[in-house]
């Protein structure tokens, strides 16, 4: 029961279902629709395309099914 919504908590609530960028610490960038996220920053996304650092570098992979990204590896989650 949180009496104070944290900036990160509000951000995550508002971003579910939206198109996002998620970058992992390795530099791999994922673009897609945010399906869900938990307290450990584990993320599931759909309609995902994978790039190295930026989209301009070309698409490495497109995933037809849902993708799971490990929270400990997440560098950032950003709105599109």
């Amino acid at each position: 029961m949180e009496s104070k919504a944290t900036a990160s908590g509000s951000f995550l609530e508002n971003i579910i279902g939206k198109p996002v960028y998620v970058k992992l610490f390795s530099g791999i960038l994922y673009q897609g629709k945010l399906e869900s996220i938990d307290g450990f920053m584990n993320v599931t996304m759909s309609q995902v395309s994978e790039h190295y650092e930026a989209e301009e570098n070309g698409t490495l992979h497109k995933y037809p099914s849902e993708v799971f990204l490990r929270g400990s590896q997440v560098l950032y989650i950003s709105e599109k």
Partner: peptide, 9 residues
């Protein structure tokens, strides 16, 4: 460059 908000871990 990004528009909108970003959460940096």
């Amino acid at each position: 460059r990004f528009q909108g908000k970003m959460l940096l871990t």
